[in-house]
C-alpha cells in the first residue's frame, strides 16, 4: 500500500523541531502549541493537527491546535462531549472517519464548514494510561488516502512521551543539543525496530532485545547498531 511516510529530511525536521521547542518555549501551553504546529507542518498531506488533553480536575484543557478553525472544532467537541478526538481519548482507541459522519452531527457540520474531509485521532498512551489524544485533519481526500497509518502511529507514540514529559523537559536545564540528540537517536532506533519487526516477524520489545544483544556482542552503542540496520534497509540509489 503506498503511504506518505515522512522521508528522512522530514523526520529530521520533526525531530529537530520537537527538540528545539522544548528548550526554547517558556510555557507549557506554547510548547504544546509548537508540537501541533510541527506535526501539522512536517507530515506530508496533513492539513492540521491538535492535541486533546484532560484538564487537571475534569473536562479538557483549552484546545491546542495548529489553526484557529481547528481550535474552534475541538472546543465544540469539548462542549458537546461528542467528536472523534473526545472519543479517542475516552475510549483509548483510534478513531478515523471520513466527514461528514452521522456519529458526531455538530462536529461534522462545523468540520465540513471549514473544509475538513477526514479526521484521525489516536490516544496518547504512556505505560498503558491514556494522557490525551493526537488528532490529524485532512482537507484533501486523496492526501488522506495516501497517508501511512503506521507512520501516524509511530508519531502518536513519540508525541505521547514528549507530552507526558513536557513539564519536566521545559523545566530541566538540558542543553538544546542533548535534547536534539535524544530525539534524533529515538527516531533512528524506532526505524530500526520497524525494519527488524518486518524482517523477522517480531514485536517491538523483541526488536529492541535483538538490537541490545548485538550491541553487547560487538561492544558498540545501540544507536550505531540501529543505524546500520536502517542503512541496510534503505533502497540502493544506484538501482533503478
Amino acid at each position: 500500500m503506498p503511504g506518505a511516510v515522512p522521508d528522512e529530511a522530514e523526520e529530521d525536521e520533526l525531530s529537530l523541531g520537537l527538540a528545539g521547542l522544548l528548550f526554547a518555549q517558556q510555557t507549557l501551553e506554547s510548547a504544546l502549541e509548537a508540537v501541533v504546529d510541527i506535526v501539522a507542518g512536517t507530515l506530508p498531506g496533513v492539513d492540521g493537527a491538535s492535541l486533546t488533553l484532560p484538564a487537571q480536575e475534569s473536562g479538557f484543557r483549552p484546545p491546542v491546535a495548529s489553526s484557529a478553525p481547528l481550535r474552534a472544532l475541538d472546543d465544540l467537541q469539548y462542549r458537546s462531549g461528542r467528536g472523534p478526538c473526545v472519543e479517542a481519548f475516552t475510549t483509548a482507541r483510534e478513531v478515523g472517519s471520513e466527514l461528514p459522519s452521522d456519529r458526531w452531527p455538530e462536529f461534522s457540520s462545523l468540520a465540513s464548514g471549514i473544509g475538513i474531509l477526514r479526521v484521525w485521532s489516536s490516544p496518547l498512551r504512556v505505560r498503558g494510561e491514556t494522557g490525551g489524544a493526537l488528532n490529524l485533519f485532512w482537507a484533501d481526500e486523496a492526501a488522506a488516502a495516501r497517508f501511512s497509518i503506521e507512520a501516524a502511529r509511530v508519531l502518536a507514540a513519540q508525541t505521547a512521551v514528549v507530552v507526558a514529559n513536557a513539564h519536566e523537559l521545559a523545566d530541566a536545564k538540558f542543553h538544546n543539543a542533548q535534547l536534539r540528540h535524544a530525539l534524533e537517536t529515538r527516531t533512528v532506533i524506532g526505524q530500526a525496530q520497524g525494519v527488524l519487526m518486518t524482517r523477522q516477524g517480531i514485536d517491538a520489545p523483541t526488536a529492541f532485545d535483538v538490537l541490545r544483544r548485538a550491541s553487547q556482542r560487538t561492544n558498540r552503542k545501540l544507536h550505531d547498531i540501529a543505524a546500520d540496520v536502517v542503512a541496510s534497509a534503505a533502497p540502493d540509489p544506484t538501482e533503478t
Binding site: V126, R127, V161, A164, N165, E168, F174, Q178, L179, H181, A182, L183, E184, T185, R186, I189, G190, Q193, F208, L222, H223
Partner: peptide, 11 residues
Amino acid sequence: LDSLGLGGNLE
C-alpha cells in the same frame, strides 16, 4: 534523557 533517546517510555 539517554533512555528517551533509546526509545524508552519511562517518565
